[in-house]
């Protein structure tokens, strides 16, 4: 059931519903089948295959096509853009924004995931044992994940508003002066990362919680009899036994955080300056964020992102293989 664990993810920041955990290799019954079955299989899969070609392969191919031509809106409609080869990529790599976008992406991704995972794990452990109200409270934790990103992002913008935001008002009570969370280059990236951590906690909580359910209770009982305290139990039992699930959670978190656009775009639009411009935002801004769309470099940045995602896809597959081999 690996597939569930990974597929449950999804939306912008990192998302995913519930999931469950370590996989058992799918044991297919090998038996003689009537001749028709192969064709039936193809028939049932046909809508998906057509769909994938039309709505995945073709858009991705168009995207590659965009990145090696010099497209503008006019050339878009007429289809007569000049072929420029690698030029768009060269321009991307030599752009002054590239280094910053890369650094921002790294910061946003790594900090988001580190905190989402740590807090999600802590909460999963907290919720592991039954206590009154534990189930409804755990369900409530899903709320941030289920809300449309635009809703959460605009709420955070208002909370972090310099003059009227609740966060500044709260800090003021402790004598902290006004902080321009979203409008100063020093804090903007931190602010969007903060909002994104909040968004991603439910996803980690759900996956890790279901991972915990698969650790047999008697392991803990035995440890408890041996005199191991809660802290010791966590490091000697929970953490090591949860490693496969953790790896998948982190990897998926990584891939989904890399492609976040909505949260950052709604809160800061990549600014001020380029201080919150990640690779995904850069691509979005070039193509759709300004009055003058520049699709070709945007597509080039997008393709770089895909390569990164593919790299992690392969790592993911390796990880899964190793687990199934066990």
């Amino acid at each position: 059931m690996t597939t569930l664990a990974e597929t449950k993810a999804g939306r912008g920041s990192t998302g995913g519903a519930g999931s469950d955990v370590p996989p058992a290799p799918p044991e297919k019954l090998r038996r003689r089948r009537p001749h028709g079955t192969r064709w039936a299989a193809i028939g049932f899969a046909a809508p998906l295959l057509v769909y994938l070609v039309l709505f995945y392969v073709y858009p991705l191919w168009r995207n590659i096509d965009l990145s090696i031509h010099d497209y503008n809106i006019r050339a878009f409609v007429q289809g007569d853009a000049d072929f420029v080869g690698w030029q768009n990529y060269v321009e991307i790599f030599s752009s002054s924004i590239f280094a910053q976008a890369l650094a921002n992406t790294a910061f946003f991704t790594i900090v988001s995931i580190a905190f989402q995972f740590a807090l999600g794990l802590a909460l999963a452990v907290f919720f592991r044992n039954y206590f009154p109200l534990s189930a409804p409270l755990r369900a409530l934790f899903l709320m941030p994940w289920l809300l449309p990103l635009i809703v959460s992002a605009s709420t955070w913008s208002w909370m972090l508003n310099s003059e009227n935001g609740i966060v500044n008002s709260f800090l003021e009570a402790f004598g902290v002066g006004q902080i321009n969370w979203l409008t100063s280059p020093e804090t903007a990236l931190l602010s969007v990362t903060l909002a994104n951590i909040w968004l991603g906690i439910p996803f980690c909580l759900v996956i890790l919680y279901s991972g915990l359910q698969n650790i047999p209770e008697d392991v803990y009982e035995a440890a408890s009899l041996d005199g191991a305290g809660a802290w010791r139990q966590f490091w000697s039992i929970t953490f090591p036994l949860l490693r496969p699930v953790s790896a998948i959670t982190l990897l998926l978190g990584l891939v989904y955080t890399l492609k976040v656009v909505d949260v950052i775009w709604v809160m800061t639009a990549g600014g001020p300056g380029s201080s919150t411009t990640t690779l995904a935002i850069w691509s979005y801004r070039e193509a759709f964020g300004t009055g003058q769309p520049d699709f070709s470099p945007a597509a080039a940045v997008g393709n770089i992102l895909i390569l990164v995602a593919l790299l992690f896809g392969v790592i993911h597959l390796q990880l899964q293989r190793r687990q199934e081999a066990r």
Binding site: L60, N63, F312
Partner: peptide, 10 residues
């Protein structure tokens, strides 16, 4: 794993 931005452009 493909970013939505990329799909949107395509």
């Amino acid at each position: 794993m493909i970013p939505a931005v990329v799909m949107a452009m395509g």
